[in-house]
């Protein structure tokens, strides 16, 4: 994770603030399903567990966690949708 994500172009933002596990992961999955490969989803969350959960989610699904940061009590994640033929 080279950048903190603040400068990343975002294709969609998902606001999961105020929800707890499993809601952020399930909603992120549903949002990623609606994106095209290579597009970036930004997720806003307040669930403390999401800090551990999103890296695990990315490892298992192949969607890339480009960056994660915390700002004013909100955890912000940037996930790039995986796709067939993607080399990175």
């Amino acid at each position: 994770m080279a950048s903190n994500g603040a400068d990343l172009p975002v294709d969609r933002t998902l606001d999961c603030r105020g929800t707890l596990c499993p809601v952020p992961i399930i909603q992120a999955r549903q949002a990623l399903d609606a994106l095209a490969p290579g597009q970036v989803l930004q997720v806003l969350a307040t669930d403390l567990g999401s800090k551990a959960d999103f890296p695990a989610f990315a490892r298992h699904t192949g969607h890339e966690l480009l960056a994660a940061r915390e700002q004013d009590g909100t955890f912000i994640y940037y996930l790039r949708k995986a796709g067939p033929g993607r080399l990175e």
């Binding site: 596990c21 499993p22 992961i25 399930i26 992120a28 999955r29 695990a56 989610f57 298992h60 699904t61 192949g62």
Partner: peptide
């Protein structure tokens, strides 16, 4: 909760 999360993780 575990089932829906696991399904979200493929």
């Amino acid at each position: 909760i575990l089932a829906t999360t696991a399904a979200a993780m493929d």
